[in-house]
Design a protein around this nucleic acid. Structure first.
Length: 425
RNA sequence: GGAGAGGUGGCCGAGUCGGUCGAAGGCAGCCGCCUGCUAAGCGGUUGUGGGGGUAACACCUCACCCAGGGUUCGAAUCCCUGCCUCUCCGCCA
């Protein structure tokens, strides 16, 4: 969420940002209309309240002196009735204005390339050598199924499409990846490990920006408490400090968390229907930072580097892409995607998305800090990135390190965790 | 699942039969003074958000004592609902 005052006073900038994001600008007009009415009425209601307060005080004073207050009391009653009526309208305007405000996306940082869709994204750098094969490289699902470590068919029986069973060395490889990533981030990159709730409430989803706009992407439990399954650890981990005022000394805060993630994938019918790329349930190790505003862009570079380090240590070729204004997520001010090489598809696919939200999430979630000696509070800047999506890393390993005999070489960094250097038929 | 207790400002903690309560007191913090230094001491000060206002302060005002409703001229104080915490019993991993 943007600052309500900022939106009001810098309409041109919001208008501009919406344009860059290739979005309609009518929400802005709608917001302004409601917001102006809201302020007008608010002023009026506050004046009435002031009147009521002073009358009530008079009544109190008079009664203490044993006087007759009935005349003032009836006057106060009529003021009070007026307030009740107006307050109802005011409440409607308030929720209306907030609703619109929550639908306005973040303003892209000036360094973000302009573009209307993914074709406008800019490759920042590449790393690693794409493997050369003397044979036709196979898809990871073929490799996995023939090795007996992936079973999509039975997963379909148990749950449905877009689920997988990992078995034997496959399950072990998945677990190895999680351990490897968490160890790297906690030991070498200074993150504190978190294991958060995987069901969260509506407020948390709103805090990080999944709601109200992206309800259809989420799994919601039928339970009357209205729990949602998290689509990413970003949600519970960022919300750890929701409605808190942090000490300046406490910043920066770095958290890493492994969690399963759950996504409806509504509207992606026909996309990546096979394999591990797009599942309803997948594992991810997430990186989350809470930092001071002046540090957030440096921290974004560092965080992206932390995610890249995973790929480097695994020896997986990748590239870093700066998402353009039209392709960036709703809450983000700047995003780098890490894309890993998939030989069978002959292209790079997203494996991590690292974003600086500036104060967009912090304002929604009310995560603030106080500077030493300074007056008032400021919103922190929040960042997060996958470090990495485990399922996609799994798939990339199968594809990049496949051998002609159908076996798969395990990267050095994982051998200690998997207990073998090769998965064989 | 059954029975009780409770949720007040950064923390601790008081709030009488509802009436200048945004809230006593203490701690912590900040600013002075004092002290050879430190400690102690003395005086003052310190919540958050919204609206108005200002070049910027100042200032004015409204709201907030877990959340949401209700009663009332007026609620931290009374009533209802929800959430959370704690204790005891039962049950289960």
């Amino acid at each position: 969420m943007l600052d309500i005052r900022f939106v009001r006073e810098h309409t041109d900038k919001i208008f501009d940002a919406l344009g860059k994001r290739a979005q309609k600008t009518d929400i802005l007009d709608k917001f302004l209309e409601i917001e102006n009415k809201r302020r007008e009425l608010l002023k009026f209601v506050e004046e009435l309240r002031q009147q009521r307060n002073s009358l009530s005080q008079d009544i109190g004073r008079l009664k203490k002196q044993g006087g007759d207050a009935s005349a003032i009391m009836s006057e106060a009653k009529s003021v009070s009735d007026q307030i009740t009526t107006k307050e109802e309208t005011l409440r409607e305007l308030e929720t209306g204005a907030l609703q619109e405000l929550l639908l306005i996306p973040n303003i892209p940082h000036e360094s973000v390339p302009h573009g209307k869709d993914e074709t406008g994204n800019v490759e920042v750098r590449t790393w690693g050598e794409k493997p050369q094969f003397t044979f036709e490289p196979r898809n990871h699902w073929d490799i996995g199924e023939s090795l007996g470590i992936l079973d999509f068919e039975r997963a379909g029986k148990i749950a449905g499409a877009r689920f997988a069973i990992l078995k034997g060395a496959g399950a072990k490889l998945e677990r190895a990846l999680i351990n490897f990533m968490l160890n790297l981030h906690t030991k070498d990159h200074g993150y504190t490990e978190i294991f958060p709730p995987i069901l969260v409430n509506r407020q948390s989803m709103t805090g990080t920006g999944q709601l109200p706009k992206f309800e259809e992407d989420l799994f919601k439990l039928a339970d009357e408490r209205g729990f949602y399954l998290i689509p990413t650890a970003e949600v519970p981990v960022t919300n750890i400090h929701r409605e808190e005022i942090l000490d300046e000394d406490a910043l920066p805060i770095f958290y890493t968390a492994y969690t399963p993630c759950f996504r409806r994938e509504a509207g992606s019918y026909g996309k990546d229907t096979r394999g591990l790329i797009r599942q309803h349930q997948f594992n991810k190790v997430e990186l989350v930072k809470f930092v001071k505003p002046e540090d957030s862009y440096n921290e974004l570079e560092a965080l992206t580097g932390n995610a890249e380090e995973v790929l480097k240590r695994l020896g997986l070729p990748y590239r870093v892409v700066s998402l353009c204004t039209g392709d960036m997520g709703f809450s983000s001010a700047k995003t780098y995607d890490l894309e890993v090489w998939f030989p069978a598809q002959g292209k790079y696919r997203e494996i991590s998305s690292c974003s600086n939200f500036e104060d967009f999430q912090a304002r929604r979630a009310s995560i603030r800090f106080k500077r030493k000696g300074g007056k008032g509070t400021e919103f922190v800047h929040t960042l997060n990135g996958s470090g990495l999506a485990v399922g996609r890393t799994f798939a990339a390993i199968l594809e990049n390190f496949q051998q002609e005999d159908g076996s798969v070489i395990i990267p050095d960094a994982l051998r200690h965790f998997v207990g073998t250097d090769k998965i064989v038929l």
